[in-house]
Design a protein around this nucleic acid. Structure first.
Length: 587
RNA sequence: GCGUCCAUAGCUCAGCUGGAUAGAGCAACGGCCUUCUACGCCGUAGGUCACAGGUUCGAAUCCUGUUGGACGUACCA
């Protein structure tokens, strides 16, 4: 498709140049550069070239130029002229798709699940950091958005040829961790997740909420938490033990949630092990004069050159900060695995942090600092305001998935498809995941989103389950085709007969999938894939509805359409994978 | 104050590297199941693309300003 566009672009430009010469205009070949567009309606053609920019060059109105061009082709290349349609100032080309149709379908069916992959980031090491939960509470909807984006971006980069490493930095130290520990110590009375039957991360999270209730009534609570932090850092043994235990509970609970939502990492880092990193680098930077020291001994970075305030890197007592750690971990990671690009999937509230981090790494002389990228995404809000885990007004990840699963179950049961799907629980979970991931990835990462628990995630219309449903209907059709295979014996795949307007649209659409993958990769934006999926399903749904494929008396037509349908299914599957929609044969 | 991001239909969102009448879904209303899965398909209605300038043959899209909102901003993570 792309080749054909360029071919036509050149052909038209050459013709325009000849016309200019004939008419005695002083025009260079280089000045003639057409813009390639897509006509707004398929029946107008497949490729459009607006002629407005040439108006000045030719001192003619664009519609007249179009007229010249048409007659030029009629005189010199009547074969080509047959493809040209003039609509006012536009030249529209309706291409012969029969050649493309065969090639595209063969290409898709041969390459199967690697169709769409590109070489754009071939061999490049790309590290993606995402999720990064605290170990004082379970995951909530905000994490789910982070996880969806991170997972999808990692897959998209890999599909573009990159060697990807997904990393998770567990935030397992700090006062907030002490808060749930302290509340447990005070109110827990030795209960455990096992003894109470509560999922282990929720068990810990409940004490975090409890702490915040407690600290509202008792102002000493906060001070006690700080004391605990100090004791912990000084290695007081029973605190260490308590931390080991509770931290383990949270992490195993969170890992269960990852498992359920299809999230996985190549490597876990733990802040409790990395928090000292960076100190040495900062001191080195101070010695070489990149940073400076205040009278109280704290070390600072001057940032006025990028129009920001100065920033502290080591406290006056010599301890490190969040930023210091991040400097250290970035350097350590590059040393261990020399990435070409490091993508941090982190909320937009940390925009400033990353701006500073990247700048400081550059100042320290690391040339790879130019390839660090903060993939910032907006907050998830509820209709009545923000989610606050301290107050317990969050949409819990496990609860949400469970609720969606129940809705899916009810739906399948109501539609009388329980026997069809053979595993009700598993199928329902897949539908829930599709709904969730598609919902989260449809929205451009940069935007804040409002989540209305009662109506945000629906299963009909522009949703994940709609896409899955399309896949299931296609699968069903293909099963029927196999069952009745003898009826179609002797039918031949003839791409040329797939010339319905709808078929032309579908072929064009599936042929562009690699460009979509490339686009999503360049912009690190999964929503490119989700919109594509919806567009493709929408076109195909209509085709499916209008054309009863297996009913056609002509065997060649049936066989050819089935090939097209197979190709569409393959593209759907490949795109599903990139945005975390499980493919279902039956639903 | 400064910095970053955002503003499109009643609601939730696409479209933004400039091009032909601004698109979906939900909600509302009306059609379509003896035919490959109706979680579907078709149609009706719904818009000052926040506002004002500018650039351009052409602006939702680029630039400037204004308004409104979110987030951040010197020893939390």
């Amino acid at each position: 498709m792309n080749d054909i566009k360029i071919e036509w672009k050149n052909k038209l430009e050459e013709a325009l140049f000849s016309i200019a010469e004939l008419q005695g205009f002083d025009v260079n070949r280089e000045q003639i550069n057409l813009i390639v567009e897509k006509p707004p309606k398929p029946e107008m053609g497949d490729i459009a070239f607006p002629l407005f920019p040439l108006a000045r060059l030719f001192k003619k109105n664009p519609a007249d130029i179009a007229g010249y061009l048409k007659s030029f082709f009629e005189d010199n290349d009547p074969e080509a002229a047959a493809f040209i349609n003039i609509t006012g100032p536009y030249i529209n080309i309706r291409i012969d798709l029969s050649d493309l149709t065969g090639k595209v379908i063969d290409n898709i069916l041969e390459n199967e699940n690697i169709f769409g992959n590109t070489e754009n980031f071939r061999g490049q090491k790309v590290m993606v950091e995402f999720s990064c939960p605290n170990t004082n509470k379970p995951l909530h909807l905000g994490h789910l958005r982070n996880d969806s984006i991170g997972m999808s971006v990692a897959k998209i980069m890999a599909a573009n040829g990159a060697e990807v490493r997904k990393v998770n930095l567990i935030n397992d130290r700090g006062v907030h961790i002490c808060k749930s520990m302290l509340a447990y110590k005070t109110f827990g009375e030795g209960s455990t997740p096992e003894s109470t039957g509560i999922k282990s991360d929720h068990f810990v999270g409940d004490y975090y909420v409890k702490f915040n209730q407690w600290s509202k009534e008792d102002p000493d609570a906060e001070a006690e938490a700080r004391t605990m932090l100090k004791d912990w850092e000084n290695g007081v043994e029973d605190i260490e033990d308590l931390w080991e235990k509770m931290n383990g509970w949270t992490i195993s609970g969170i890992k269960e949630t990852y498992e359920k939502t299809g999230i996985a990492f190549d490597e876990y880092y733990f802040e409790s092990k990395t928090y000292k990193e960076g100190r040495g680098e900062v001191l080195k930077g101070f010695e070489s004069g990149v940073f400076y020291k205040e009278d109280d001994g704290s070390i600072w970075a001057e940032l006025s050159e990028i129009n920001l305030d100065k920033k502290v890197l080591l406290r006056s007592d010599g301890t490190s900060l969040y930023l210091t750690q991040d400097i250290g971990t970035a350097i350590a990671r590059h040393r261990d695995w020399a990435f070409k690009k490091l993508i941090y999937v982190v909320g937009s509230e940390q925009q400033y942090h990353f701006q500073v981090l990247f700048h400081i790494l550059k100042k320290l002389g690391f040339d790879w600092a130019d390839n660090l990228h903060h993939l910032s995404y907006g907050m998830v809000n509820l209709p009545d305001g923000k989610m606050k885990s301290r107050e317990g007004t969050v949409v819990d990840a496990d609860d949400l998935v469970a609720e969606l699963t129940e809705i899916a179950k009810a739906e399948i049961t109501a539609k009388d498809r329980v026997t069809l799907v053979d595993n009700l629980q598993k199928t329902s979970e897949s539908v829930a995941l599709a709904a969730l991931n598609y919902y989260l990835l449809q929205i451009s990462p940069a935007k804040d989103m409002i989540f209305d628990p009662s109506e945000s995630i629906s299963f009909s219309g522009n949703t994940g389950p709609y896409l899955q449903y399309m896949g299931a209907r296609i699968s069903s059709m293909l099963r029927k085709y196999e069952e009745r295979k003898d009826d179609f014996k002797g039918g031949k795949f003839k791409p040329g007969i797939l010339d319905l307007e709808q078929e032309r649209e579908i072929v064009k659409m599936i042929s562009t999938f690699p460009q979509i993958v490339a686009d999503a990769g360049e912009n690190m934006n999964p929503s490119v894939i989700s919109s594509y999926l919806y567009d493709l399903s929408k076109i195909f749904s209509r085709y499916y509805h209008d054309i009863p494929i297996l009913q056609d008396p002509d065997k060649d037509i049936v066989v050819s359409r089935i090939q097209l349908v197979r190709a569409v299914l393959q593209v759907l599957k490949n795109a599903f994978y990139l945005v975390g929609i499980p493919f279902l044969e039956r639903m």
